[in-house]
Computed example of a mutant assay.
Amino acid sequence: MTPPSRPLFFQTAEQRTALARQRFFEEGERPTGLVNEAVIQSWMRCTAARRNAQDPIGFDPVTRSRMHASLMRNRQLLQAGNEELQQLATALSGTNCRVLLTDAQGVVIHASAPLGSVAQPLMQVASRVGVNLAESEIGTTAPGIVARAAIACTVNGAEHYHAMLQHLHCAAAPIRDVHGCLAGVLDVSIEGAPFGFDAAALVGLYASTIENRLLRMQSPAHLVLQFQANPKVLDTPLEGLAGVDIAGRLAWLNPVARRLTGADAALLPEAAEVFGVPLDTLLALHRESVPRALRLPNGLTVWVRAHLGQGDGVDFNRAVAAAQPAEAAPAPAAPVDAPPAAATLDNHRDRVIAETVAACGGNIARAARQLGVSRGLLYRRLRAHAAGSAPPPADV
């Protein structure tokens, strides 16, 4: 008797997932095309680690010392996400979802209060600060996959490796730092019913917002460029961001910036090459109140704004504003054998300091007040810049 043939098509995602589990767990086949490839990879890692899909999960927290260490180490991430985590919880207040933020290893460092009135016994124990959601601890979940592979992922129902987690649905996205490394994972989870909205898009939007804020917080000594092909989306999660270091190289790019420029920050390209204008032109953008249109070397026109943070305690925006009246004065002639100064943020800072001191008639105390720094810091900067030349002007 001929065995019944397998149906070629399945109408629902639940049916496709059930077939994928049958092929993978019972028949030892790779269920390519039935579930997300990231889920299949996670199943394979769990199997290789000899995890039993029928074993219960305890959602055990890490040790108290590790939890405190993670909270201290991720203070900046929590600060960057504080407003967005509250806004996301508000947006989900009419659902039964929970908002979780984990560190790069999958340990929960923020969990929202219960949203809705439906009982969620699994989420009740999973949504606690200190619980380890890493794949090595609880198998296939969205935050576990993101912590392992640093890619956005959604895991629904029976896509979870362990049978007891098949009532959960979760969507997670990575948050990266200025070094391009995973800084944390933002997750939205619900127990019982599936999401009634596009959870992946919502999580991706908020993760991008937190990441952009974290990048700015980690760039006090960088020239930060905001740009997009449409100026109306600046100051939104859709904007491109780039950090330029004191040597004039791109220290980092957010994902939008990489797509717009085609550049790779890991190669530390010159900002002038990527944006098609000299560094001095990019530096001057922070004085302009409206974005400027720039045509990139790849032919795309983008609208750009620039911001200078604080380097060595000098607020560049205030310093440049204070130095404006002195710009009309002729600059002293450089020695004939002196090499031209490199156009870097470091030179820009020293030039601003020198011009402000000159505008104050050599009065260090007055110049320090205008720059918003201490006299001691100003003396140290002048001595470092002089490098063996005449001593700095006396405090009149």
Rank of each mutant, 00 (worst) to 15 (best):
F227T: 10
V277G: 03
F197R: 11
R381K: 15
T261L: 12
F275E: 03
H286V: 08
P393Q: 09
R73A: 15
S136I: 06
N347H: 13
A359M: 10
P143D: 10
R128A: 13
V352W: 00
A265S: 14
R64Q: 15
Y161I: 08
S5P: 10
A158R: 12
I40S: 09
H68L: 14
V108K: 06
T209S: 14
L186T: 06
S289M: 10
I353T: 04
R21Y: 01
H167I: 05
P339L: 13
G276E: 04
G299H: 12
A322G: 13
V256M: 08
F227E: 06
H160K: 11
L238S: 12
R73E: 15
A365C: 09
T102N: 08
T261K: 05
G33I: 12
G311T: 09
A172N: 05
A343R: 03
G106T: 08
V107L: 13
A272Q: 15
A306L: 04
L85G: 06
G94F: 02
H222Y: 12
D198Y: 02
A322R: 02
V118K: 13
V39I: 13
R50S: 13
L225K: 07
Q11F: 09
L8V: 10
T12E: 07
F24G: 03
Q22T: 10
T301L: 05
Q310A: 09
D245C: 11
A48P: 01
A48G: 04
C170P: 05
R50I: 03
A251P: 01
Q370V: 02
P121W: 05
V304S: 00
A394V: 09
G240M: 13
Q87W: 06
A319E: 07
G130C: 12
V224H: 00
R45I: 01
R176G: 00
M44A: 12
E14T: 14
A263F: 05
G243E: 07
L377Q: 14
T12S: 15
T281C: 11
V146K: 04
V274M: 04
V203D: 09
Q324E: 15
P31E: 11
A69Q: 08
L100W: 12
E26K: 12
G276I: 01
M72G: 00
